[in-house]
Design a protein around this nucleic acid. Structure first.
Lengths: 230, 230
DNA sequence: ACAAAAGTGTTTTTCTTACACCCATGA
DNA sequence: TCATGGGTGTAAGAAAAACACTTTTGT
């Protein structure tokens, strides 16, 4: 077995860009940092990588600590490795973005971190390079949303097509023609129309749908990729 | 300033998936590992992250050591963080893929690593999770090649449209209609047709082109994105 | 003359886009 | 009855796919 005594060892963290959606708006879950330096400043939720866990496990743990959610869409998008990104000591950080059901998450937020949702269109200055992390995560989200059915992670299990439309308008930051949007969705067999309607937003009521992951897999295997654009 | 005495510190490496193109084939530059365990096995070129360098700098250095090339297209695509990916000791690794001019690189390869080019369609078993790294890198390359003009990094500065066609066929692993491919390229003003022809592959000769990065930037800023598909 | 690579044109079909239109219902 | 959100249909145009066709030149 090799000996690596003489090599540099590094502190490694994970930081989570936790994204939710509510009232037609994408939101980001931030905390107030409780360590020096910059105690009390806005920060992403993060944590240090432990010897016995993988990066993915660390991100999952950190997300669980704050939101008490598991089985969440979580994707590593970039590892930030500048020498001086943290002015205190050098820390590498793997950035993960998480797509959560904001309603569910809000109900069970840990009180230990002074966490708050802020609109993704209006993110305050964050510590270190966290603003850059958010920018990159958002870019990745836009891309994923186009090519993979990840949007549903941000909605309740049952949703109306209008809600989905508003979600995509928020993600892409531009208006989408409702007629054309609906037609594209109609072709997706894996969007299952339920027998219930939602009456929150209209008198007539809008049909509720759910995303059937299993049926999507089948479609995907048959070479029908997901695609939705602005 | 905070004290992080009690936290776990980690060995961090970078591994480079170095991709070249020659005679209609994509190739991968591998070395014979010179450390135990697995001395002599096929491996990606890699190196440990030093205290005073960023991840990007480490990848650049590692690439330079082997190929003596700088100013190369280099992109981080994923950081691999399983606890037991290296059976010796835990090592995190940031994966970078590099697109190089294989002709140029081959001329100046460092003799210290027993490096060899192997066809990307026929990669031998590699140490650790390196095969998985290659798989992910290739997936990312396919994506980049579609949406960004990175293919040119794999060709000499001057190239014919036939060479470009063969490159894209190799990247996507499928035949492309030459007529339609040419038409798409004709619309890209940033492909500058030179006054010379190449006579290596045909008697008639094929016009040489070069990619004008500056003109591409202009087109991009005007909202004309690069797009080429199989 | 003909094989082989280089390069151009044209037709057919498919997909987008833009927008007009109908439906249901509570105030 | 009319404003509002929900939902469908369609005609014009753009873009992709398929493929026939011409050019050039060494053998």
């Amino acid at each position: 077995m090799a000996s690596y005594q003489q090599l540099d060892r590094h502190l490694v963290a994970v930081d989570c860009i936790i994204i939710g959606f509510k009232d037609g708006q994408l939101n980001l879950l931030l905390i107030r940092r409780d360590l020096e330096p910059y105690r009390g400043e806005w920060s992403l939720m993060g944590g240090f990588l432990r010897a016995a866990e993988s990066l993915d496990e660390a991100a999952t743990r950190v997300l669980l600590e704050l939101t008490n959610l598991s089985n969440v869409y979580l994707e590593q998008f970039h590892t930030f490795g500048s020498v001086d990104r943290d002015p205190g000591e050098r820390i590498l950080s793997a950035g993960y973005f998480a797509l959560v059901d904001q309603v569910k998450a809000s109900q069970q937020l840990s009180p230990d971190y002074s966490a708050h949702w802020v609109p993704l269109t209006d993110v305050p200055p964050l510590i270190f390079d966290h603003n850059e992390m958010v920018r990159l995560a958002l870019r990745r989200l836009r891309h994923r949303a186009k090519h993979e059915p990840v949007g549903f992670e941000l909605l309740q299990e049952q949703f109306t097509l209008s809600q989905l439309l508003k979600l995509y308008e928020a993600i892409f930051g531009q208006a989408i023609d409702p007629g054309n949007f609906r037609r594209r969705l109609r072709k997706m067999d894996y969007l299952e129309q339920l027998d219930q309607k939602d009456f929150k937003d209209s008198k007539r009521g809008a049909w509720l749908y759910r995303f059937d992951a299993q049926r999507y897999e089948q479609a995907y295997d048959q070479g029908i990729p997901f695609f939705l654009k602005p």
